[in-house]
């Protein structure tokens, strides 16, 4: 947890509304774990006021962090206009990331922009368990959206499974269905780590519960501070009164601890 003024060293427009930004930020890169996020300040003016949370896509060269950002509003539109060389005010790495531990084999499941933090996770898992075969399930609306998100997963050790809503790439249908078809009947446990749209995570949590697989999910929400002060990013917790906070208790939660709505 620190504030670091980094520098934008690379800016790639992957589609008309998806941006890949690479920042030199050695202090944050050195201690970041997969699933953690940074709070990025958009500009020095008061509008937009708040920092934006982004999960870390990967840490290229170990001294930089890379973010993959979809332009959805005023703040992200301003990010799209940034130019290489400019300073960036970062706070991070924040939150609790994915657990990287055995004994069950890992399996990653990502949907849409939720795929972003999984590349970092895949790399760390393979680094820690070099002999592992790592099944990675990636889903998106269409081939267009998925192609660049799946970029980087072609690592030795990764078994890639793809599904799209429109069938334009991989299986036609939901990524959770593909996972159930491929692994649901196999004996032995699987440790699932996932990030994606809420309905995907919800059905994944139900699947994992049925199959008795441990499952971690990364949730997202609007947040003001990212460091546990504003209490704005509340998410209802099961088996206990009150709320957890995505910024400090998460963003990665045990799927069993989330009160799915």
């Amino acid at each position: 947890m620190l504030r670091e003024i980094g520098r934008l060293i690379r800016r790639d427009l992957l589609t008309e509304d998806i941006l890949r930004l690479t920042f030199i930020a050695p202090k944050i890169a050195a201690v970041a774990d997969p699933g953690q996020f940074v709070m990025l300040r958009i500009g020095k003016s008061h509008d937009p006021l708040l920092r934006r949370p982004f999960s870390i896509h990967q840490t290229p060269g170990d001294n930089s962090i890379q973010l993959l950002i979809k332009v959805v509003g005023k703040g992200t539109q301003m990010l799209a206009e940034w130019s290489v060389g400019q300073d960036v005010d970062l706070v991070g790495p924040l939150g609790k990331g994915f657990r990287i531990e055995g004994p069950e084999p890992f399996c990653l499941v990502g949907g849409g922009m939720g795929i972003v933090p999984l590349l970092f996770l895949a790399k760390k898992v393979l680094q820690k368990f070099p002999l592992l075969r790592l099944p990675v399930f990636l889903g998106a609306r269409s081939a267009n959206e998925l192609n660049f998100l799946a970029e980087g997963f072609n690592e030795p050790g990764v078994d890639l499974y793809i599904a799209t809503d429109d069938g334009s790439l991989g299986s036609h249908g939901l990524i959770t269905e593909l996972l159930a078809n491929q692994f649901g009947a196999k004996p032995g446990g699987l440790r699932v780590a996932a990030c994606g749209p809420y309905p995907m995570l919800k059905s994944l949590a139900a699947l994992c519960r049925r199959l008795d697989w441990p499952c971690e999910v990364s949730l997202e929400t609007v947040m003001a501070c990212g460091i546990g002060a504003c209490l704005g990013c509340a998410v209802p917790k099961i088996n206990q009164k009150g709320y957890a906070h995505i910024c400090t208790d998460g963003p990665v939660f045990d799927a069993e601890d989330v009160r799915w709505r």
């Binding site: 708040l50 929400t221 609007v222 509340a234 009150g242």
Partner: peptide, 11 residues
């Protein structure tokens, strides 16, 4: 106090 239901903040 548990606080209010989310969403709790908006810019």
């Amino acid at each position: 106090r548990p606080g209010n239901l989310p969403p709790r903040i908006v810019e």
